[in-house]
Amino acid sequence: MASILSQVLARFDNANEPLILAAMARDLEIDTGTLQSMIDYWVRKGELRVVSECGASCASCYGSSGCPFVMSMPLMVERVRK
C-alpha cells in the first residue's frame, strides 16, 4: 500500500472537484493539522503549490494602502501539473 504521504497526493490527482481540507483529513483519518504538515511536505517537494493572492500590483489605484476591494481568501492548494 502506498505511504500516507502518497495517498495524500493521490487524493489531489484523483479528485474531480475541489476538496475541503477538513473533509479530506477526516477521510484519511488524520488531524487537519497533520494533513496541513503533509501538504507542506509536498509543497516543499514541488508537487503541490499554494495558490497565492493577487499580489502587490493591486496597490496601483488606491495608493500604498493597497486595493480595498481585494478579499483575503482561504488557503488553497493545488497539484503542480508536470
Binding site: P18, A22, Q36, S65, P74, M76, V77, E78
Partner: peptide, 27 residues
C-alpha cells in the same frame, strides 16, 4: 486543476474588522 481549500472556522465578525473594511472601501 482540482484543489484543496481550507475553510476557515466560522466566527462572529468583529466590529473593528467590519468598520475597517467598510471604511476603506467607502472612502
Amino acid at each position: 486543476q482540482p484543489f484543496v481549500l481550507e475553510l476557515p472556522p466560522y466566527r462572529m465578525p468583529t466590529p473593528r474588522n467590519l468598520v475597517t473594511h467598510v471604511w476603506e472601501r467607502t472612502s
